[in-house]
């Protein structure tokens, strides 16, 4: 569970918290990703796009791999954790193929990006059914809105 950031008393009050800067960086990176994916999809099929996408992710894999070699983790049940992480990658990759295919088949980036960003609706529904997690009012409202959004975009 992430803990709230403790800001030292001598730090200027106007200083942006680090988590906000990382969050903004994420918005910028993923926001531009939607744009470049559409540019790529106009000249390449979904499968080749996934191959090139993986080429792009390789330097990061190398960086994180080298970084983790210095920080061994001795927690138990690692194999099971690795299994789930690997499965996440496979499912994520198949999702990527569908995302690229949506763009190749004429979907506008300005519509495909908001639709696919609705993926947490599936996560919360699965968590509700299989992990028996409870949903709050706002999450129920979000789910209802998600269906409205898909309907609006399908007409």
């Amino acid at each position: 569970m992430p803990q709230p950031e403790i800001v030292p008393a001598d730090q200027p009050a106007s200083r942006r918290p680090l988590w906000l800067l990382w969050s903004i960086a994420t918005i910028l990176l993923w926001g531009v990703w939607g744009l470049v994916s559409k540019i790529a999809s106009d000249g390449v099929d979904a499968y080749t796009n996934q191959l090139l996408y993986t080429l792009g992710i390789l330097p990061l894999l190398l960086f994180v791999g080298l970084h983790l070699r210095k920080r061994p983790d001795s927690r138990p049940n690692q194999r099971r954790g690795i299994f789930w992480a690997f499965l996440t990658g496979i499912l994520g990759g198949v999702g990527n193929l569908a995302f690229f295919q949506a763009l190749v088949k004429g979907g506008a980036a300005s519509i495909v990006a908001p639709v696919t960003a609705l993926f947490p609706m599936v996560t919360v529904l699965l968590a509700l059914i299989f992990l028996r997690e409870r949903l709050g009012r706002r999450q129920w409202a979000g789910l209802a809105l998600a269906f409205v959004a898909i309907y609006l975009l399908s007409i």
């Binding site: 927690r75 789930w84 499965l87 999702g95 995302f99 979907g107 696919t116 609705l118 599936v122 399908s154």
Partner: peptide, 26 residues
Amino acid sequence: WLTFAILALVFWGITGVTQKLATNRI
């Protein structure tokens, strides 16, 4: 294209659960 977009959101949505199962352990 919308069918494929929904397919992507379903697969990515499942990763939300598998990711949680992974980070509970690593």
